[in-house]
Design a protein around this nucleic acid. Structure first.
Length: 825
RNA sequence: GCUCUAGUGGCGGAAUCGGUAGACGCGUUGGACUUAAAAUCCAAUCGGGAGCAAUCUCGGUGCCAGUUCAAGUCUGGCCUGGAGCACCA
């Protein structure tokens, strides 16, 4: 065995062998239980970044560990390859998005192989290839048939920079999630998926996911935004037969209504406007329409609005109140109209103050009554000025008042969600075409399944500005109706890339199927994903959409489970000097350089070493250096002892010879490392245990001059165990060492270490002796001692004797195998 | 504003159940080897105080209370950072 560690040489050699042998292909027919380990697949943007390296290393170690533990592990990789950057690159370089994407995929594939990742490349999926997007289109048609895909005219988020509409989930602080430019409102006819049909079950089923972090579940729950309240319908004084319904979560405050607000886009607003107010209302509405999301946000504190001139009637009091329009009422939420109670709602309070509208207190804290002159009182309290409900606690009044409305026919209980339907059309080229045609006679006609895929046209001019390049094709849009054969126009919008990524994990179960997206028995066999690993930035978008897809496909009878990802690990970001690595900050580290200078094993070891996976990871060059030194140290330990190591002692050791601290240390390491992986994948402590074991072997070896047969057995056992324990992380080094020491086959095919519980602990125990809760002495004692004996040995301690001299012993606490606490006065 | 999450040495972090706070590493300091350097190895490294010394002693896990024989860990209240949502009635 070579004296020195040459990672570049070793790594290249093994990567070639693994590649040639398809070493990590997963067999379909196996008696072993399945395990599906999955990383969120990347967008092929050009090169891997350290976030990818962290993500894929974590999943790879999990996959290898589970495989060694006896699972049949599915660990695939693919490409989320539709999307705007490819199209922008094409425009910029006059190239084709497909060429650009293919080149990136080729380069990144090379990098993934250089990282030593154990992927089953035979199952690779690439969302921009017709053999994949054919099935994306097919799934669209199934959703369409089921009424879950529909087209409607609506106010949508428009990004001018990207030249396309966006889903609500893709608007961050009123800006585009991709290019950060300000999002405008436009009225367009667009395709939606009816995710709102699943709002309740998407919320409820979060409880079925104990393997997900609370942060992600809370974010989804907030996004779905369920609330309980009531609908009340108000008659309009001036117009017979017209009612304005409102949704409120505070039915208890209904006696305090002093005005009512409808959104500028409210459907009946024209009818509700008197001729005298028409001009002002029209102007206000025109302004509201022009305003972008961000402008509406920036006017957060300053309320605006105009009166309509008409009045509503409160059925509880008979009181009349004016109707207004204001943009703080949102047309998409509830009924688009709000009953305003300025005394008990901060927004209504601000509005009423500004426009000098009346206020009426209806809830009070009996201990500390507020007149609500300076701010709204929104805490619990007791009803006042509320007729028959006076004196009732407001929580009870919510129910009682709504019940009265139900009884008298002007209201009902209502559960409301904030989740909106998912807008999936994009006015871009590089996406899966939406498979429908518009016929002059038949209207919207889905493309028949046997005509799929609807291929992207090639005769496209990518240099156009202000419209989708796909519309420049001479061959694409013009078509005939599949129904009547008449003249028809093809849909030129493509699907949001998040549609493609909402089902890719299912395709891995049957990636080469040309007849269906996946066979039902295969998808049911491999799914759900046992461990999903990826960034927190997908907490809402991708993870919510995927959950929706899984539930919808289950309802379509395509699969038999209702949650796609059993366990989710959201890894933290990779930072450098305390901030996120980014090109604009110039603090990126190129993985290629690390591979070249230190090798992939060092990169893998380091990216796992310093922080638990869920936390942010601060990159440090010194840390990389430290990991490289450690691998060198391990290599030297193996190489310098290679002649004394025998494969006969591979991973097990006769118990009769076990009364040796070195053997115990190995068992302790086996147990500790296995438990750390099982316990939320704490790889940072796993790695510290690699170091502890390495240090222990060095120390033990250094204390011996010549080794007898038994010593050699202990040494072999220790080193071979260390190699196996490190094999999921330092995949190349351990493979090479295993081979050099005479191991048969691959170290990665060896089963995981089995430890002996009796040996996985120190031979004696340290008894901590406290007096009044403070540590005063430590005693080495036999494990077998009884509680009384432990107590006796503690009392024997000279230090204890000294400290309790002349004092009264109140009590003595004995914790078996651990501690004795003498309490004195 | 609401929700989630975190706060431990110079730094990253460790500490199954409430039971030795600071594992492991980075950095720093000193030493060995070397003509020298790199590499490697050894030792020290939470803070204050006492001692030539081994050692002894006090304090210490964001802050304030509490529960307990015993609190980084549990309870209540606050402070600070990070993340998400945000005029959602």
């Amino acid at each position: 065995m070579k004296e020195n560690y040459f990672p570049q040489e070793i790594e290249k050699k093994w990567q070639k062998i693994w590649d040639e042998n398809d070493a990590f292909n997963v067999p379909e027919d196996s008696d072993k239980p399945k395990y599906f380990a999955l990383s969120m697949f990347p967008y092929p943007s050009g090169k891997l970044h350290m976030g990818h390296v962290r993500n894929y290393t974590i999943t790879d170690v999990i996959a290898r560990f589970k495989k060694a533990q006896g699972f049949n592990v599915l660990h695939p990789m693919g490409w989320d390859s539709f999307g705007l950057p490819a199209e922008n690159a094409a425009m910029k370089h006059g190239a084709n998005p497909e060429t650009w994407t293919d080149e990136n995929i080729a380069y990144m594939t090379k990098q993934l192989k250089m990282l030593g990742l154990s992927y089953d490349w035979k199952r690779e999926v690439t969302t921009c290839k017709p053999d994949y997007y054919k099935w994306t289109q097919w799934l669209f048609l199934q959703l369409y048939k089921k009424g879950l895909a529909y087209k409607k005219e609506a106010a949508v988020n428009w990004c001018d920079e990207c030249g396309t509409v966006l889903a609500n989930e893709q608007v961050i602080d009123g800006k585009c999630w991709r290019c950060d430019s300000v999002v405008e409102k436009k009225y367009l006819s667009q395709w939606f998926f009816k995710i709102t049909d699943y709002a309740e079950v998407l919320l409820e089923d979060l409880d079925k996911l104990p393997g997900w972090g609370d942060n992600v579940k809370t974010m989804q729950a907030n996004w779905i935004g369920k609330s309980h309240g009531a609908i009340f319908r108000f008659k309009v004084k001036e117009i017979d037969g017209l009612e304005v319904p409102v949704y409120t979560t505070r039915p208890d405050t209904v006696h305090g209504i002093t005005y009512l607000v409808v959104a500028p886009e409210y459907k009946d607003i024209d009818k509700l406007t008197t001729p005298e107010n028409k001009a002002a209302v029209e102007e206000y509405r025109a302004n509201a329409r022009k305003m972008s999301e961000i402008e509406r946000l920036s006017t957060e504190r300053v309320k605006t609005g105009v009166p309509l001139g008409t009045h509503g009637i409160n059925p509880f009091t008979g009181e009349e109140f004016p109707l207004w329009t204001a943009d703080y009422a949102l047309v998409e939420y509830g009924t688009g109209a709000v009953m305003a109670v300025p005394t008990h709602d901060t927004r209504d309070f601000d509005f009423a103050k500004k426009f000098n509208l009346p206020m009426k207190v209806v809830i009070q804290n009996p201990e500390n009554p507020s007149d609500c002159k300076d701010e709204a009182y929104t805490e619990p309290g007791v009803l006042v000025n509320s007729g028959e409900f006076n004196g009732m606690k407001n929580e009870e009044a919510k129910k009682a008042i709504t019940e009265k409305a139900v009884r008298e026919g002007f209201g009902e209980f209502k559960t409301q969600y904030r989740l909106r339907d998912w807008l999936i059309s994009r006015q871009r080229y590089w996406g899966a075409p939406i498979p429908v045609v518009y016929c002059e006679k038949c209207g919207i006609v889905p493309v028949p399944e046997d005509q799929l895929p609807v291929l992207l046209p090639k005769d496209v001019d990518f240099s156009v500005v202000g419209k989708s390049p796909i519309t420049t094709s001479q061959t694409f849009a013009e078509t005939t109706c599949p129904h009547c054969g008449g003249k028809a126009r093809r849909e030129t919008d493509t699907m949001d890339t998040f549609v493609c990524s909402s089902w890719y994990y299912l395709r891995y179960s049957d990636a080469r199927n040309a007849e269906m997206p996946f066979a039902r028995d295969k998808v049911n066999k491999w799914l759900p994903v046992d461990q999903y690993v990826g960034g927190i930035e997908h907490a809402i978008l991708h993870l919510l959409y995927s959950r929706f897809f899984t539930k919808a496909l289950r309802d379509l009878g395509l699969l038999d489970f209702d949650e796609p990802f059993k366990n989710l690990l959201t890894q933290g970001m990779v930072l450098k000097d305390g901030s996120k690595m980014s090109k604009s900050k110039g603090n990126t580290v190129d993985p290629d350089e690390i591979f070249e200078n230190y090798g992939a094993d060092t990169a893998r070891l380091f990216i796992l070493s310093d922080s638990p996976p869920a936390r942010d990871f601060d990159w440090s060059d010194a840390g990389v250096e430290g990991c490289y030194k450690f691998l060198n140290r391990v290599w030297r330990l193996i190489a310098s002892n290679a002649d004394d190591i025998s494969m006969d002692y591979k991973l097990e050791f006769p118990l009769a010879k076990a009364n040796d601290d070195m053997v115990r240390n190995v068992h302790i390491a086996m147990k500790g490392i296995t438990n750390d992986i099982a316990n939320d994948f704490q790889f940072n402590t796993v790695i510290s245990k690699y170091r502890e074991l390495t240090n222990a072997i060095y120390e033990w070896r250094g204390a011996k001059k010549d080794l007898n047969a038994e010593d050699k057995a202990v040494l072999s056992f220790a080193i071979l165990s260390l190699i196996k324990l490190m094999s999921p992380v330092a995949v190349h080094l351990t493979e090479e060492a295993w081979k050099e020491l005479g191991g048969n086959g691959s170290v990665h095919d060896e089963p995981w270490c089995e430890w002996d519980e009796n040996l996985a602990k120190a031979s004696s125990i340290t008894l901590v002796v406290q007096v009044n809760g403070k540590v005063k002495d430590k005693l080495e004692v036999d494990e077998a001692l009884s509680q009384d004996e432990l107590k006796a040995s503690a009392m024997e301690s000279p230090k204890v004797k000294e400290l309790i001299e002349g004092k009264e012993i109140v009590k003595v606490i004995v914790v078996p195998k651990k501690l004795v606490n003498v309490v004195v006065k």
